[in-house]
Amino acid sequence: MDILLVDDELDFIEPLAQRLRLRGYKARFATNGEALLDQLAKSPPDVLVLDWGMPGLSGPILLERIHTGWPTLPLVILSGYNTPKGLRQENWPQIREVLTKPLHFNGFLEILEGVCPSRGNTVPQQGDNA
């Protein structure tokens, strides 16, 4: 499974991507909206994990752009708030899940596997609670 993670918090996104790679996923990341759109244009992933509240091109603007250019790309939204400002999930069928930080890693893996079950290549390990 090819996962593209987008968050301006490099300290968060880098170890998360590394943990996914250690489990056999292809995980790459972008730290701003422009870099995300650039990566999407070059090679769309199987699933996009997007932070809602980035500076510059933020969630609402990016969601419109992604919906226009990649309308079937599955999205998982991350947020530092319980209720991301301005997001109405029911209006966007592309959004499979909205998650609040900090992530529960096993739950996150289950969601990713649920989004792309046919492309999963690693079963989450038992007892992986971190």
């Binding site: 170890p15 930080k101 900090p102």
Partner: peptide, 19 residues
């Protein structure tokens, strides 16, 4: 919001150390 971000970094960094 920032506290949640800090917790997220701690969780992933500690998780990576464990991994």
């Amino acid at each position: 919001h920032d506290m949640r971000n800090i917790l997220a970094v701690i969780r992933e960094s500690a998780g990576l150390a464990q991994d």
